[in-house]
Design a protein around this nucleic acid. Structure first.
Lengths: 96, 96
DNA sequence: TAATTTGGTTTATAAAATAAACTACTTTAC
DNA sequence: GTAAAGTAGTTTATTTTATAAACCAAATTA
């Protein structure tokens, strides 16, 4: 049974998957960097980071670097676990 | 660069991905079978099959088995190619 | 000091998923 | 034979998501 609901809908989104995948490879990343790497618009990115943050898949810290506001994102344990589950399911789909 | 738009949006949908993945493993499949395997509602399935069919990722044939209408789905070359591209991209995301 | 850039957020619009209602039969029960 | 229930879907309406556009505040540059 390939129940389509098995794929975590929070991760199964073009942009959110790219974000989480990116964050997995780094200690943390700033808003602007994530924006550049994913090619997302700032608005879209802001919304999706918020969703991931509310689910506690990532943590977000706001600070200042000199006078510039800096938004720093970091994946959480919850996020890593969810991603690993997602990978297991998607692998069944792509037959690996 | 993990541009989030690289993931074919037609395939990057919970249900449509499940459908295409399922069809890849069989010669062809009937509506009711796909519905059972994916756990989709008939309405949702009807809509998504239509989209895949319009993009020519699958072909749909309607016939009768005795007196019952039967909708038979089959993946096309276009669908297989699109799926293979999708797999390449998603693998970059899940780090394989 | 007026435009431009930076780093975002908020709000509006477009697209997708889902559910509900409906169609067109067929089968079963009375 | 006819009323109720089942099968195999489609169509339409509603809700949820994704995306884009508009906006804001502060800083920088011309």
């Amino acid at each position: 049974m390939k129940a389509f609901k098995d794929l975590d809908p929070l991760l199964h989104s073009q942009l959110r998957l790219a974000i989480v995948s990116l964050l997995l490879g780094v200690e943390s990343a700033e808003f602007v960097f994530v924006k550049e790497q994913t090619g997302a618009t700032a608005g879209n990115l802001s919304v999706q980071l918020d969703k991931l943050s509310k689910a506690e898949y990532i943590s977000i810290e706001k600070s200042f670097q000199g006078k510039k506001p800096v938004t720093t994102c970091k994946i959480t344990k919850t996020g890593i676990d969810a991603f690993e589950r997602y990978v297991k399911v998607i692998k069944q789909y792509i037959g690996e």
